[in-house]
């Protein structure tokens, strides 16, 4: 069951002023339209989701999240708080493990956003358990991504920096199983940068982040060569 985690890598970073979500999209065919087939979705204006595993199940999960969020805001006339939403979604996902007439969700989802209490980042498993994170990773390259995430200083990090790191980490996670090309997708949500809304990062920032990732990568290679020379 856990093997569905062989999907492409998704990560989430909680910075001091917001959250950043990023996914690695493997390009399976040259005929796919570049820049389309978006993978990160929005549950509510202030909440985004990235998931790995069976993509159609992820869509089901997001649809349920949207239902929950709109039901809440219709009833209480305020945006749903993220911990509460996660609680509801956790119950929903858990329900799919209880009966023989349904199968559990085949996705691990990273949910992030900003609400009245600041930024939040959660990761939810097919079992229905969810945990709060400052840096979350799932999918094939999660081991590499996790160890890279641990090196970040989350107290000081701004979302703008986090976007660059996200690009770098996805690139490094991809290195390990370098089989096919990939496309990078990054979204962010922060009070300062997006007015508390979950949005795709602007094209120029995305390109800047990709460039940064590439340069970092080249430097790493040089470092490795240096150490090899030394030994």
């Amino acid at each position: 069951m856990k093997a569905v985690e062989n999907g492409s890598t998704s990560i989430g970073i909680k910075a001091k002023d917001g959250v950043v979500l990023a996914v690695e999209k493997i390009v399976n065919s040259k005929l796919l339209v570049p820049g389309k087939n978006k993978r990160i979705q929005t549950i509510d204006r202030h909440i985004g989701v990235a998931y790995s595993g069976l993509l159609p199940d992820g869509r089901h999960f997001v649809n349920r999240g949207r239902d929950e969020a709109s039901t809440y805001s219709n009833m209480y006339k305020e945006p749903v708080s993220i911990p509460h939403l996660m609680d509801r979604l956790g119950l929903y996902v858990q329900n799919y493990t209880c009966y023989n007439s349904v199968r559990p969700f085949g996705v691990v989802s990273i949910v992030g956003g900003v609400d009245a209490n600041g930024p939040h980042l959660y990761m939810i498993e097919p079992s229905g358990t969810y945990w709060g994170y400052t840096g979350a990773a799932t999918g094939k390259g999660r081991q590499t991504a996790k160890s890279e995430l641990e090196k970040l200083n989350f107290e000081e990090l701004t979302v703008r920096e986090a976007v660059k790191h996200a690009a770098r980490i996805i690139r490094q996670a991809h290195e390990d199983n370098k089989d096919k090309d990939y496309e990078l997708e990054i979204t962010w949500c922060s009070l300062e940068e997006t007015g508390g809304q979950h949005q795709f990062v602007p094209e120029d920032l995305l390109q800047e982040a990709i460039k940064f990732a590439q340069e970092e990568d080249d430097e790493d290679d040089e470092d490795e060569e240096d150490t090899e020379m030394a030994t």
Partner: peptide, 11 residues
């Protein structure tokens, strides 16, 4: 797509 997804998750 969402319609088809239901058929893969329900007995």
């Amino acid at each position: 797509a969402d319609k088809a997804q239901e058929n893969t998750q329900l007995y």
